[in-house]
């Protein structure tokens, strides 16, 4: 099974059609509405600021998924209640999207750690909405992962055996300090909660080496490939996999730790396809590791 673990569904019909929701994202990402409306259609999800063209259904999305050979998308919401008064994509919207196509989507929850009812929101997401994990964005939500206030949230994830996807490393979004998302801020979490499965998204770039160190040291830390290239995906991934990381690091050390994630698979898969690796390593990268991280592995 091929799983893309990093998709932002802002252009999906359950999200993009609502004018209030669109206006909220425009405000959060400091975009003029006319710019947002003229932005390219987010057929498969864009970085979370994208509003997309408001697709009416999933016909283009599923055609693309089939073309790319992707079976499932992990969909990521974002709760910005205390900083902005709303959600980029809400847990309720994720629940609706998953209900529309449960064979294609795996829905995650989000929670703003500063909201007084954070644990209730999370409990509802896991217990009632059956969401499969938690997305946290330290930069946009302005918290350090090793802040003691986070501990009840981590314990709730453990209680329900749910993994956490941390945004890690650079974010190009406005009002989004990178200092919060440095990979090493997750180290103490990994130590205190060795059973908690953690993904440091985007290779933690530009701290890809720091991410490698954490993946090497802690069995419960994973990373994903949803980095934003600055040149073609094939050049960028060759650089990450063979230069920022030593040429043998991936296959010799991290074959069980890197998951395919795209932000949007358009063009992204070309970069992954061009990387040379053993077929069994590729199978892990494209889905096997995700099943393990999601807790869906058949043993």
């Amino acid at each position: 099974m091929v799983i893309d673990v990093h998709v932002h569904p802002t252009g999906y019909p359950q999200v993009a059609q609502d004018p209030e929701s669109r206006a909220f994202r425009d405000r959060v990402y400091q975009r003029r509405t006319e710019d947002a409306l003229s932005a390219p259609i987010a057929m498969t999800g864009k970085p979370s600021g994208g509003n997309g063209g408001g697709n009416k259904n999933f016909d283009v999305l599923f055609t693309r998924m089939d073309h790319e050979g992707i079976d499932r998308f992990v969909l990521l919401p974002l709760d910005l209640t205390t900083r902005y008064g709303g959600w980029i994509v809400s847990n309720d919207e994720i629940e609706q999207i998953v209900a529309a196509a449960p064979d294609r989507f795996i829905g995650f929850a989000s929670v703003d750690p500063y909201r007084p009812d954070a644990l209730e929101v999370l409990e509802h997401a896991f217990k009632d909405q059956k969401l499969a994990g938690l997305k946290l964005h330290p930069s946009k939500q302005a918290f350090y992962p090793d802040d003691p206030m986070m501990e009840p949230i981590y314990k709730k994830c453990l209680e329900y055996n749910k993994p956490i996807m941390f945004h890690s490393g650079m974010s190009c979004e406005p009002d989004c300090l990178v200092k919060y998302a440095r990979p090493v801020h997750v180290e103490e979490v990994a130590v205190k909660y060795p059973e908690l499965r953690i993904c440091l998204a985007h290779f933690g770039w530009p701290w890809a080496t720091e991410t490698a160190m954490l993946c090497l040291k802690y069995p419960n830390i994973y990373t994903d490939t949803a980095a934003v290239p600055m040149d073609s995906p094939e050049v960028f991934f060759r650089h990450i996999f063979t230069r920022e990381w030593g040429p043998t690091w991936f296959e010799h050390n991290f074959a069980d730790k890197v998951m395919y994630g795209s932000n949007s698979p358009r063009n992204h898969t070309h970069g992954i396809e061009k990387l040379e690796m053993r077929p069994d390593t590729r199978a892990k990268l494209m889905g096997g590791n995700a099943l393990k991280w999601l807790g869906m592995e058949v043993k």
Partner: peptide, 21 residues
């Protein structure tokens, strides 16, 4: 060619992604 060194392959802030087309 689909794979070549194009100037358009750079980060476009307005897209939040690279223009790799």
């Amino acid at each position: 060619p689909t794979f070549d060194s194009y100037n358009h392959n750079h980060f476009l802030p307005s897209y939040g992604a690279i223009g790799c087309n």
